[in-house]
């Protein structure tokens, strides 16, 4: 069975509050905060991109796992903001973590769920013993058009997971996974376009909710597990509201969702979102805890996972950098002008 051997995350230091964005567009901050359940979002520094975030997360994952990075046989980086259109982020990561050259690598794109697609690919490769270890990363410096509702949530961050097949090194076992996929035009960005476009309210019922709920129900059916069997549940979180609504429809409580819901304090990290939530939950999980994870990528699809923490999670906990420590420590609040400068919205 595929095992999670280690993980690491990265979230930039800069933050912008909902109040500051709302001030610029003369909108109601309280209305936005209540409607989207978000208080602030992370903003990448001028010298950060999806590759630098992926590398920082990957280095933490290697430290946490305790493995020799040269034994990593596959690296997949999921993002919708890869720095190059042609030249893989995954090779930059492999060089930066000194993984050597005996590996396969590729960049993935499936809106916000490419990181979990990578996890599924590695499950097959680890289960079949094609590789000893593989690394999947979800990393983004997501874009929101100025004045668009997305601007309140589109943020930056990433998470890296190392997958293997040796139970002795495991911190959690991936019990099973299923996917639900359809051609749904809810959100897209054409080649060369600076910002994504979306279908407004169409991104809700036929897109996010249909896919997240369908995939999760399929997982329940396939595994025989019920909502009450899970200590934690993590859904993709384009805002702080959608995952809680989906959870309610599936019979999951706010309590089960609480520890994996990071969007209210860092925004939507796109490809990083569900994996960052999983990492936050693993920071707290104890052996035997079951974790439900369902990602969502526009276009559209959801990958759903049943994961169970193993005895090894306690032994490696001391060398992990906790998600909430990374999120809370070193925050620097910026105004809209600095936000624009960092996002290259204004230049000298």
């Amino acid at each position: 069975m595929a095992e999670i051997i280690g993980y690491g995350v990265h979230v930039p230091h800069y933050r912008i509050k909902v109040e500051e964005i709302a001030r610029v567009w003369s909108e109601s901050a309280e209305g936005i905060k209540k409607g989207l359940n978000i208080r602030e979002k992370s903003v990448p520094s001028h010298d950060e991109d999806a590759a630098t975030i992926a590398v920082e997360a990957a280095r933490r994952a290697v430290r946490h796992s305790g493995i020799d990075p040269k034994e990593i046989g596959a690296i997949y980086v999921g993002s919708e903001s890869h720095p190059y259109a042609v030249k893989p982020t995954a090779t930059i990561v492999s060089q930066a973590i000194s993984a050597g050259h005996k590996l396969t690598a590729a960049d993935l794109e499936f809106a916000c769920k490419a990181g979990t697609a990578g996890m599924q690919m590695l499950m097959g490769m680890a289960d079949s013993k094609m590789i000893k270890y593989g690394m999947t990363i979800g990393s983004d410096t997501s874009q929101g058009r100025p004045g668009d509702a997305l601007e309140y949530t589109a943020s930056a961050g990433g998470a890296a997971f190392i997958i293997g097949n040796d139970r002795k090194e495991s911190i959690a076992t991936i019990l099973d996974t299923v996917s639900f996929t359809s051609d749904t035009p809810d959100f897209w960005r054409r080649e060369g376009a600076d910002f994504p476009s979306h279908g407004g309210r169409f991104t809700g019922e036929p897109a996010y909710f249909r896919h997240v709920i369908s995939a999760t129900k399929m997982l329940f059916e396939k595994t025989g597990l019920a909502p009450k069997d899970f200590k934690y549940a993590v859904f993709h979180q384009p805002n702080g509201k959608f995952p809680l609504v989906a959870a309610k429809q599936l019979g999951l409580s706010d309590e089960q969702m609480r520890d994996g819901l990071l969007t209210p304090i860092i925004g939507n990290t796109y490809s990083g979102a569900s994996l960052l939530g999983l990492a936050a939950v693993l920071d707290k999980a104890v052996p035997g805890d079951k974790i439900l994870v369902t990602s969502f990528g526009s276009g559209a699809g959801s990958d759903s996972f049943a994961i169970e923490a193993t005895d090894g999670i306690e032994a490696k906990r001391a060398r992990s950098d906790k998600v909430l420590d990374i999120v809370d420590n070193g925050k620097i609040y910026i105004d809209y002008a600095m936000y624009l400068k960092n996002r290259k919205g204004i230049r000298k």
Partner: peptide, 8 residues
Amino acid sequence: VRQVFRKM
């Protein structure tokens, strides 16, 4: 200080 990975 500690080393980080950034665009130069």
